[in-house]
Design a binder for these strands. Structure first.
Lengths: 159, 159
DNA sequence: CCCAGATGTTTCAGTACGCAACTATTCAGC
DNA sequence: GCTGAATAGTTGCGTACTGAAACATCTGGG
């Protein structure tokens, strides 16, 4: 059991600013997206995934995998999206346990209608606020964090 | 109505990495904190605020203000924290509409017990993953975002 | 004074999510 | 083939949050 040093001033500054900025930014983007698309960002992400998939179709478990989320969330979310008419479910012939989520024409239309406003929002509150150099730095930083989080994802600090 | 240009490759890369990294990081920190302190980050933040306030006391509306959250969340949260014995409520003499939330000794103890593990977690998944230079860059970036979000906070992209 | 509007807080209804328990299907080993 | 373990997905319950409406109290203009 080793002693972990407290954060110094600079680390403290970065951590506090990052924590707050992140929360406020995500809140803002969520609001904008809700207004533009009538759905939360997580649902939007599902539609994006489906729109980019061959046949506009993905298996539930694939959706769970690519969104890094639990199966139950996919069930709930696809249920809602189905109710909205944006997604349709089809049984999977090759594996009778499985289901396909298929993006409907209405879903694609909703996505295309919302996308410009979404981009606008990301620009207005993130990209255009920063210098091109900072955008690039943020990319590097995020990728480094991702690498850590995705690889040693099972490791917890002390335990 | 002006055309907003789509994101170029570099912007796209940063935005996608940032979005995912942020979500995964926050999830991880939330889990760690839940394990260390038995409470969500937002409750932890309330205890921190109270611990730093004179008399370990703040008004409900102040808590809402400093956490950038809605009043109803404070009511719920303080209710839970009160149940846990970490916070006590006192009526406010000078304004009979108001209530004070007071951090109890147990609350302070819980906070002090959880803090080292929390710091450890922030180090392990954020600070120590980055170079000191990147930590500093992230601080600058976050502060720039904060400045934007806090000032023009009422402005939405197109509307 | 007193009443209208502002402010502080709670309550209620509704959303998104995780966890744990469950059903149904597939697969591996014998 | 058959049985037991792994996998796919759903369901139900509990938690944290929001927005709107309700309610109490305060404040300022007549």
């Amino acid at each position: 059991m080793t002693e972990t040093p407290w954060l110094d001033d600079e680390e403290q500054r970065s951590w506090r600013a990052f924590g707050l900025a992140t929360r406020l930014l995500l809140d803002r983007l969520e609001r904008d997206l809700q207004e533009a698309a009538g759905m939360p960002p997580t649902y939007y992400e599902l539609l994006v995934l489906l729109s980019e998939a061959p046949g506009r179709t993905m298996r539930m478990s694939e959706l769970a995998h690519w969104t890094h989320s639990k199966p139950s969330r996919i069930t709930h979310a696809i249920g809602k999206l189905e109710q909205a008419g944006w997604v349709r479910r089809e049984p999977l012939a090759s594996d009778r346990r499985g289901w396909l989520a298929v993006l409907t024409d209405e879903g694609l239309a909703a996505l295309r209608a919302a996308a410009p406003r979404h981009v606008e929002s990301v620009r207005a509150h993130l990209i255009d606020v920063l210098s091109p150099e900072q955008v690039s730095q943020l990319g590097d930083i995020s990728e480094k964090l991702l690498e850590h989080l995705l690889s040693g994802s099972t490791a917890r600090p002390s335990a």
